[in-house]
């Protein structure tokens, strides 16, 4: 239910609003990417911008991710604040050098003498049968490599605050938005992502997680779409008399280990939900962050609900079989009790 002073926005609109507001006050901000002009972005997050700011600052690019992401690095080092879009995160394979060898390393290679204030927006996530080159999350791939901040909003309020914070950051920020949360009707949308968003500009601190539901029996930690799965699982668990706490990471780099540890210290149990691949990734990192700190905080072995280590399959039943969902999270709780 919408209160009189509430204004619900999709993540797509929240991102576009944040960008427009920043562009009005900072002439160094501009947007580059494929289909971000008249089309407004395949996922709607630049809709309306070209009408207000024109084609000079809202630049449709050729299909040349290496060139335009590399160009963003050069423009950022030269005093601009580019916002660039990698349409699907899966496309990183054609341009990763510009991302991890240039964008992520030039501050370090200069000993901090140059700044690289740029935002790399990219869409993540599957669940709509787009096959194995258009459905990945790759959180771990990006978060693993030093020199990039990484954020992954789960709702429109966070999306706007993170977008503004990212544009004002002097370091590169990878902004990973989930297609299933974006509010594009044709993709199907998680309703919980469309929330009240204040009109005035505001920032969210990058590197700060949020406890989005308080609980005392188990901590369910996730980001993006996983947060919604966790919240639904928490409701199911509540019906069984189990009190689940849900932690929304919001940022993957820097990772807010304190908030995770504090939650697990309280509940004594940890389930990590990750739509990215299981091995060598986010779920392992979060569990290690808890266990290497204080293993006595745990009353049970931690569990993870993540995408199995297979390419993302096309067939609906196969993909849904692999994806995390609330029932799998409840099952993880049940296994924890049985152990």
């Amino acid at each position: 239910m919408t209160k009189p002073n509430e204004r619900k926005l999709t993540i797509a609109r929240a991102m576009a609003e944040a960008t427009a507001q920043e562009m009005r006050i900072d002439p160094s901000v501009f947007v580059m990417g494929e289909d971000i002009g008249p089309l407004g972005g395949v996922y709607g997050n630049t809709r309306g911008l070209i009408e207000e700011f024109g084609a000079e600052r809202i630049r449709d690019t050729p299909i040349s991710e290496t060139a335009f992401i590399g160009a963003a690095v050069g423009a950022a080092q030269d005093g601009m604040r580019p916002v660039v879009e990698l349409m699907f995160v899966d496309f990183f394979g054609v341009c990763f050098d510009a991302i991890y060898n240039l964008m992520a390393k030039n501050i370090y290679f200069s000993g901090g003498n140059v700044k690289v204030p740029m935002v790399l927006m990219t869409s993540t996530g599957g669940g709509y049968s787009d096959g194995g080159q258009h459905s990945q999350c790759l959180y771990g791939t990006f978060a693993h490599l030093p020199g990039m901040k990484v954020v992954a909003p789960s709702n429109a309020y966070d999306a706007k605050g993170l977008m503004t914070a990212a544009m004002r950051d002097d370091s590169p920020v990878v902004y990973m938005y989930h297609k299933g949360l974006q509010g594009m009707g044709w993709l199907g949308t998680e309703a919980g992502a469309t929330v009240h968003v204040p009109e005035e500009p505001y920032t969210l601190e990058i590197g700060k997680a949020k406890v989005v539901r308080e609980g005392k029996d188990v901590s369910i930690v996730s980001c993006g779409m996983g947060v919604h799965n966790a919240l639904k699982a928490a409701k199911k668990l509540e019906a069984q008399g189990v009190s689940a706490e849900v932690v929304d990471l919001v940022s993957l780099v820097p990772l807010d280990r304190e908030t995770i540890r504090a939650s697990v210290a309280k509940t004594g149990r940890l389930i990590v939900v990750d739509e990215d691949y299981m091995s060598y990734g986010l779920s392992g990192e979060i569990i290690a962050s808890v266990t290497e700190h204080d293993i006595s905080a745990l009353k049970a072995a931690p569990k993870r609900v993540a995408f199995p280590d297979v390419p993302i399959p096309f067939a609906r039943v196969m993909e849904q079989f692999c994806l995390p969902n609330p029932d799998k999270i409840v099952a993880a709780w049940d296994q924890m009790q049985a152990a």
């Binding site: 060139a67 050069g74 200069s110």
Partner: peptide
């Protein structure tokens, strides 16, 4: 600025030109 990766100084130089 430099890049030790072949051809990868191109993008940043083009971006600096765009910035100007």
């Amino acid at each position: 600025a430099c890049s030790g990766i072949i051809a990868q100084g191109m993008g940043p130089a083009v971006g600096a030109a765009l910035s100007r």
